[in-house]
């Protein structure tokens, strides 16, 4: 396995008037191809900043991001990014939102419709193709966003607390769907969360971030797959990991 995404000395400052806020400092991390990395951290530790940098949306103040051994200079269509907030176009129905990445790529409309219909079916939104985002519930919008990201068929998925705002049941379903997808497609996933259980349920490897992106713990998770949330909870290995991660998070807070 080779490093697909690699950051070295990554620093991001946001300047406001004469003061710069440092969101991330000297952050170095390598992500292997095909791995599922959960990035765990409390809010405000630079997780979203990190993903924006990995996605090529913002430029680092210092350091660089390398994707496939090339410096990343802007958004790359091979990298899909599911942001924390919904960015569906409110004037487009579900189907036309899902078609959008293909539209920009110049895929013919018949093909677009076919791909979109398949994805909409897959995320369980069949029957709502022509609903506008405002007519959908938060969970349904999330599914539509997921479908839109998958329409571009990205090899790398960046996800920023994608299921944070959903109810527990729905979160569980979408987590399982994501794992199924990953198992089939072999994508590389960077999944940001503040939920220890979610990190352990999904990740091969958990990176715990402290303030301004200091790595508190970087640990492989060797729990057997497929993992079920209910079975995990009583697994001694899981409990041990959970304790370890919780301690690391507490450590960072001090």
């Amino acid at each position: 396995m080779t490093a697909l995404l690699h950051t070295s000395g990554l620093t991001k400052r946001f300047a406001k008037d004469d003061v710069a806020t440092v969101a991330l400092r000297d952050f170095t991390l390598s992500i292997e191809e095909g791995s599922f990395v959960a990035v765990l951290g409390r809010s405000g530790c630079g997780k979203s900043t990190l993903l924006n940098l990995l996605a090529g949306l913002t430029e680092p103040s210092e350091g660089e991001v390398r994707y496939k051994d090339r410096p990343l200079s802007g958004p790359d269509t091979e990298i899909g990014y599911l942001t924390q907030s919904d960015t569906l176009m409110p004037w487009r129905g579900v189907q036309r939102n899902v078609e959008m990445p293909l539209e920009i790529r110049g895929v013919p409309s018949a093909e677009r419709r076919r791909v979109a219909a398949g994805l909409i079916e897959r995320v369980g939104l069949a029957g709502f193709e022509h609903h506008y985002p405002r007519e959908l519930s938060g969970g349904m919008r999330r599914r539509a966003s997921l479908a839109r990201m998958l329409a571009a068929d990205p090899a790398t998925l960046l996800m920023d607390e994608p299921f944070g705002a959903l109810d527990a049941q729905l979160r569980r379903e979408l987590q399982e769907e994501l794992l199924r997808l990953w198992a089939e497609g072999g994508q590389t996933v960077v999944f940001v969360t503040h939920d220890i259980e979610e990190a352990l349920l999904l990740g091969d490897r958990v990176v715990v971030l402290g303030p301004i992106g200091t790595i508190l713990l970087d640990r492989a998770v060797e729990l057997p797959r497929p993992r079920s949330a209910d079975a995990l909870r009583v697994d001694p290995a899981f409990v041990a990991l959970h304790t370890e991660l919780a301690a690391a998070l507490r450590e960072g807070a001090r």
């Binding site: 942001t83 907030s85 920009i104």
Partner: peptide, 14 residues
């Protein structure tokens, strides 16, 4: 215009 929507299109390679 919502920055998030603009970024979404940039991510699609627009």
């Amino acid at each position: 215009v919502d920055r998030g929507l603009v970024d979404a299109v940039r991510l699609m390679g627009g």
